[in-house]
Design a protein around this nucleic acid. Structure first.
Lengths: 364, 364
DNA sequence: TTGAAAGCGCTAACAA
DNA sequence: TTGTTAGCGCTTTCAA
């Protein structure tokens, strides 16, 4: 049995004023004699009055909180990516004294009620996510972290410039002699998968090359099927000399599949992960990867959303933030054998070399 | 300009019933003809009606959300520990379809208003944290993740069994010949610091040993002052053969300080960190540490809190969950030279050996 | 079976 | 300068 909380009415009665006067006295609005204001403040403190944020929000229409929705939040909060994203969002909400609500996200059950927040970030919108759909049609401001997959209602997007990062790394390995890239990509349920595929195809077409493709369900765990999938690809397309993979799990599968075919990853066939992860610096060989910068992305999303809920800003449909390349041995071993290849990087992303690895680990 | 959201009144009017009937029709309560119920539901869908969770909560007193407060959330969300804690809490809130609100936590500015949630977890309560104090006196249910420092109002606590883990590791290194332990501990602003100190002192007293002490501000970054602090300790207490440190940062300082004195960490002086971190497996030498299991702790806190807000459970003042030991070279190098020492661990914690390191990295 | 009325705690017009 | 009134959107008695 908890005691009934002290309300504004209690304070007003005790101080002998009306509720509106009490409200204004406490909020500092309205002009009134200093004496009444002090008297009200005093009794408020004495009674231990705490404004009910719920009632306040209901009345004012502002909550001082934004929410974060992520389809797989439950299981994939484990993912380094999402945690970093949350950290970035928290960096900016906290600095602007807002709460950040992590929405429960059962992707199958609808939730119907609209959340008690001023706006929502949808991290990594996935097609068929019932709750994301609800949010998008709720009328509250939405910013997406990463682009929408086809066939979904949309909102302003803050995303990573995958095109540029991918082209940078492709140009780099092209210089090392790569002529037959293969993309093991996430499927079209994520906007990321779509961008990856388009970019590789465009890049190949521009050079008269042909890309081999395989699709893999987004966010599967460590299974041998990754090795099998890559293996099947290698057997079907013997000329492949670059494997673009979507995650560390698939990178591991790729390395295993290559070795099983007496092909040395990083020399005979290069391996690049389209998303960096700490462990990619610890594999044998370490795997070159695109660092998506999830923390910066989370921060950018929160900043964008706050600018619309607080300052009524108008957001462009798509804002891109740069990714960075982490060059590692899975593309560098070849540099010595291929001969004549430049290891200078074109483009505007900042490359980081294996020497930075140690620092990576320490920053973790 | 966003369109005015559809309210229950709109639905009622459109369906030609009163608001109360509409409410009951939608919530499934109240007995009424199937036809009116269906009619109301139908118009609700047609108008795109979404219940306002704020109003609902104001009326019912239940929000379906719990909050998480952490003093350093802004900057130290970076800390692996806190992220894991959040992940654990999210695991259980999400499974029980609750939202998890990460509270903005400026430790100096009061916030006054009580948060829009059914209960709050205070992760790692720190003395003098204004907002934590506000929460503790607000009347809403609070569960603390880790014990309170002295002089703070309290609530039920879910914490880690530091005593047991620390005694296990102390017994272990005692078997390796340690006779003069030193604790570089967090100060008494955290309950953790207090427990650590008491446990080491008790353990030493029981064996007629004496512990050297130094205190360090909680959660400082990588600074050379750590090395200086440990160095000063080593110079002042030349017999020390075990350094207990609170974090990876101080562990690094300890290693540097020892080497600067031509003392080999792990052989001449053992090093143990009271909190594990991924990088402790990558240092030279890798450092034995107590894995606090922050994810499990976060989950346990959320479970406890939900049991009180949902089932009105009565919580014991202190619930302890076990920690695990990660034995690494910083205590093992000595095993070969000390002779006769057992590496079997007494006690109930589960030791993990360096062989597990690789897996550690992969799981990250 | 349904409707009318009250009220959760607060803020903001408008009067006095 | 202060009080009265209305109402944010919803749920829940209590009558009809």
């Amino acid at each position: 049995m908890r005691p009934r909380p002290v309300t504004l009415g209690d304070v007003a009665r005790e101080a002998g004023v009306s509720r509106s006067t009490a409200s204004e006295a406490l909020s500092g609005r309205g002009r009134m004699t200093e004496s009444t204001r002090l008297a009200v403040r005093d009794t408020a403190v004495r009674l231990g009055y705490r404004p009910n944020a719920l009632a306040q929000s209901l009345r004012t229409g502002r909550t001082g909180a934004i929410a974060l929705h992520h389809q797989h939040a439950a299981d994939s909060f484990s993912s380094q990516y999402f945690r970093e994203f949350v950290a970035g969002a928290m960096d900016v909400t906290s600095a602007r004294d807002h709460d950040l609500t992590l929405l429960a996200s059962d992707p199958t059950t609808p939730r119907a009620t609209l959340p008690r927040v001023d706006g929502v970030i949808i991290a990594d919108p996935i097609a068929d996510d019932v709750r994301a759909l609800e949010l998008l049609t709720s009328g509250i401001p939405v910013v997406a972290g990463e682009r929408y997959p086809p066939g979904m209602p949309t909102s302003p997007v803050v995303g990573v410039h995958h095109e540029q990062a991918l082209r940078d790394v492709l140009d780099h390995v092209h210089g090392l002699g790569v002529r037959r890239p293969a993309l093991v990509g996430p499927d079209a349920h994520s906007g990321w998968g779509v961008v990856l595929r388009e970019t590789v195809d465009d890049w190949s077409a521009e050079r008269g090359l042909v890309t081999a493709h395989r699709t893999i369900a987004f966010a599967s765990g460590f299974t041998t099927s990754h090795e099998d999938l890559v293996g099947e690809l290698l057997d079907a397309e013997p000329g492949v000399d670059l494997l673009l993979v979507p995650s560390e799990a698939v990178a591991l599968g790729a390395i295993a599949a290559l070795r099983a075919r007496s092909s040395e990853p990083g020399r005979d066939v290069l391996v690049v992960s389209c998303a960096d992860a700490q462990m990619l610096g610890l594999t044998d060989p370490p795997v070159t990867a695109i660092d998506l910068g999830p923390r910066a992305l989370g921060a950018a999303c929160a900043r964008a959303l706050l600018s619309v809920v607080e300052d009524d800003a108008e957001l462009p449909p798509l804002t891109l933030i740069p990714a960075t390349l982490s060059l590692r041995a899975s593309t560098e071993l070849r540099a010595s054998t291929a001969g004549g290849a430049s290891t200078e990087l074109p483009g505007s992303t900042e490359p980081r070399r294996s020497a930075d690895l140690r620092r990576d680990a320490v920053r973790a």
